[in-house]
Computed example of a mutant assay.
Amino acid sequence: MIFKHESARIYHEDQNGKVLAEILFPSEPGGIANITRTFVDDSLKGKGIASKLVEMAVEQIKMEGRTPKFTCSYAVKWAEKHDQSSCKC
């Protein structure tokens, strides 16, 4: 699966351009990137894609020198499971 990366978004589209998976993490003051939305189309659920999206987002955020914040309900659960206690949860 090929994911496209933008400054505050990672997503996957089908061949027709329909978004099938997406995570949004807009910037906030103080070097924070807030993970506000994680979406996976029903056709892809149960394949670990949401977890992969959060993992990629956190990696990208940290590589950019920012701190992740988790407000999306899925991302909050992911952060707890993956011991992201140093993040702005």
Rank of each mutant, 00 (worst) to 15 (best):
Glu80Pro: 00
Asn34Thr: 12
Ile10Glu: 02
Thr38Asn: 09
Arg37Cys: 01
His12Thr: 12
Arg66Phe: 09
Lys77Cys: 04
Phe25Val: 06
Gly17Arg: 07
Pro26Val: 02
Met63Pro: 03
Arg37Thr: 10
Glu28His: 12
Arg66Ala: 13
Lys4Gly: 00
Val19Gln: 05
Lys45Val: 12
Lys88Ala: 13
Glu13Cys: 10
Asp83Asn: 15
Ser73Phe: 05
Cys72Ile: 01
Ser43Arg: 09
Gln15Ile: 08
Gly48Ile: 06
Ser73Met: 05
Ile23Ser: 05
Thr38Phe: 00
Ile49Lys: 01
Lys88Gly: 00
Ala50Leu: 10
Ala50Arg: 05
Lys88Phe: 14
Asp41Gln: 01
Glu64Gln: 15
Asp41Thr: 02
Ser85Trp: 10
Lys88Glu: 14
Ser43Glu: 15
Ser86Arg: 12
Val58Met: 07
Lys81Trp: 03
Tyr11Leu: 12
Val40Lys: 03
Met1Cys: 08
Val54Asn: 07
Ile61Gln: 05
Phe39Asp: 02
Ile23Phe: 01
Pro68Asn: 02
Ser7Ile: 08
Thr71Glu: 12
Lys69Glu: 13
Thr36Ser: 13
Ser85Pro: 00
Lys69Val: 00
Gln84Trp: 10
Gly65Ile: 10
Thr36Asp: 10
Met1Ile: 13
Leu24Lys: 10
Met1Trp: 04
Phe25Gln: 00
Val40Glu: 04
Met63Ile: 11
Ala50Tyr: 01
Phe25Asp: 06
Leu24His: 07
Asn34Ala: 11
Ile2Glu: 14
Glu64His: 08
Ala50Pro: 03
Val58Pro: 07
Ser73Trp: 13
Glu59Val: 08
Met56Ser: 07
Ser85Tyr: 15
Met56Lys: 14
Gln84His: 11
Thr67Val: 15
Cys72Trp: 03
Lys4Met: 04
Leu53Arg: 03
Ile35Trp: 02
Ala33Glu: 09
Ala79Asn: 06
Val19Ser: 07
Ala21Ile: 06
His5Gly: 01
Ile61Ala: 00
Ser43His: 05
Ala8Asp: 15
Gln84Thr: 08
Asp14Trp: 03
Asp14Val: 07
Leu24Glu: 09
Phe25His: 01
Ile23Thr: 12
Trp78Ile: 04
Ala33Pro: 04
Asp14Arg: 02
Ser27Phe: 09
Lys77Ser: 14
Gln60Ser: 10
Glu22Cys: 05
Glu28Cys: 08
Asp41Cys: 05
Phe25Glu: 02
Glu55Asp: 13
Ala33Asn: 14
Ser27Glu: 15
Ile61Pro: 03
Ala79Glu: 10
Ile10Asp: 03
Thr36His: 00
Tyr11Ala: 02
Glu28Thr: 06
Gly17Val: 05
Ile23Ala: 03
Gln84Gly: 11
Ser86Ile: 09
Thr71Trp: 09
Gly48Gln: 10
Val76Arg: 14
Ile2Thr: 13
Arg37Met: 09
